[in-house]
Design a protein around this nucleic acid. Structure first.
Lengths: 187, 187, 187, 187
DNA sequence: GATGAATGAGTTTTCATTCAT
DNA sequence: GATGAATGAAAACTCATTCAT
């Protein structure tokens, strides 16, 4: 009945799994993940009943980390543009600082291992993340998640290009933010 | 003198592979692909030396199809907005009409099976697809592929949401186009 | 804490592989070897990463066994002829008592699966096996391994003929030894 | 009813098979043999019903070639030593000049693909090849094939060592002949 | 609770052989 | 008669998962 022993090992496994997926794709063997986490092969299955469950958990975990990064230092009372820019910058910065995590998330998001409940959970977590975006004229009448999805998609490619040209990171970030900001304007 | 290798079978394999990947992920067994293409398991490997080669070929093939769909009916001499809208609509329509193909492309794009040469080839094919976009103020100074990537990314989520709400397809298409069109405006 | 890898299983696999090769040639399926060793197919590959590695290991193992058989009861201080005869008899006897092992060794030796390092290792093990042979007039100036190779080759056919005519074993052994002994004489 | 068309193709296949076996072992694909013979994959099976039959035929063919080499220039009326030396030299020379053929023969001889009738046929062909050897004192009472087998075995290793040290070929040939010649002497 | 050895179903790939052309 | 495309049975090897220690 008692929870598995060490929260530390759980985290090690989660991160090891993310790195392994980033490096070897979703087909990456659990044995490798265990080794990277420095636990025995069998131990992994005491923390996660199934590889698929582990991967779902990884997805939740990584998104949670990203969310946390965005929340920290969020300038709650500041004007809209400042707040939006803060979210954008935090997210991009986190992505660039955690390439492996990001890569893993991308692979997982595209895959068929995520249960709909995992997807829903994450979607809900990010709902309304970007201040006021889903209320912008452009998104009127659409699914409330549409705006967030657009934000994430633009962030994703901004990261991709920025991380290929590390000396132009700020340029891409600015370009990306400009795109986002235009989405707010009236018709 | 003997039977010639059939282009028909090649295509059947390509499409079967796409469908199988869409349905079962990249880990889908080649046996399933062969069966869906109605050829023997061994035959698949006479047409494609390796599963990975097959998947790369699938990616090229599907992108080629999408490209073709966009090119057809392109109103060459029309005003900019009309041309951009045509590209947008063609692409979205193709994606909605070929969900499996689209799903397969997404999985492949996120995966690690694509060689850089495959990626480059496809990137090049779509380069400049969207009339004038990469010359817009927003993309000045960025990689010429950035604009195209943004276009594709926005198209992707537009398709995703549209295909979940089939009665609001036109609304999403319009919304999506609005986003694109704003990218053209001066600072 | 957990079961240790069993040396017993390793040996079982090695011997099973030898028997299987003797019976079915080098193309013998690993599945058969595993079954004969009474372990699962997958287990074989935990002990030997590759069929080829297994076969190399088999070759080393069997030669080691033969070597041991020769070393045991070697009459260290006896006159030359006695010592040479002991080596000859031990080797032939071992070969006749272990037909399968011998057959496997022959097939392996002729094949292209043995790495040069395996060959070198075994060659070195047997180097100088036959007391004084490589110093005989006949072998002056030749590779030091030449004498040993001649010895082994003569032993091989002696075994082959002896094992076809089990009632004339001693005659063949004697005949064989006579050949060897003549190699020692001065020009 | 009519024999397969071209004797030339038959020979090409036989030689290609020998080379392929020498290079890739007995597991060498028939497709490769066909390609090396410059005929279609299917054609091979019009000349030889089965891979195994082909390999048996190869063995016969190569031994036939070796035999022919020995027979040519055989100094029929010369004294014994001259005749024996001629056989020895011819055989070694042929082996050194046809490394691939020799390698193939070795692999085949060690393998389990040769039918006993093939083996018997070849054994018979070489029976009595070496003038008077099987009547030497040493071989009295043994199988008449024993002497030939000894001759072949000594020849084999002589070739092996000679071909590794191409500048000492004559030394090895002489050394080898000396061994053979000693087998003739009275007890 | 942790470990890692054992398992065997499942995967990709090869290849001898057949047969339509 | 020759060709080479097609076949599918096997082969080597992998890996999620179990369980004895």
């Amino acid at each position: 009945m008692s929870r598995p022993r060490s929260e530390e090992k759980r985290l090690a496994l989660l991160n090891a799994a993310a790195e392994t997926v980033a490096a070897h794709g979703l087909g990456a063997p659990t044995a490798l993940m265990a080794k990277k986490a420095e636990v025995a092969e069998g131990t992994l299955f005491r923390y996660f009943p199934t590889k698929d469950e582990l991967l779902n958990e990884v997805y939740r975990h990584l998104n949670g980390c990203a969310y946390e990064a965005i929340s920290k230092d969020f300038p709650a009372g500041a004007p809209l543009e400042i707040r939006v820019r803060s979210v954008w910058n935090s997210y991009i910065d986190w992505g660039l600082a955690n390439r492996a995590a990001n890569e893993a998330m991308t692979q997982l998001a595209a895959s068929s291992v995520l249960t709909s409940s995992t997807r829903a959970e994450v979607e809900a977590m990010f709902a309304g993340l970007v201040p006021g975006l889903s209320e912008a004229d452009l998104f009127k009448g659409q699914s409330p998640y549409f705006a967030d999805a657009v934000f994430m998609a633009l962030a994703k490619i901004t990261m991709d290009f920025a991380s290929c040209e590390r000396d132009r990171v700020e340029a891409y970030k600015a370009s990306g933010f400009a795109m986002i900001w235009r989405l707010y304007s009236k018709d």
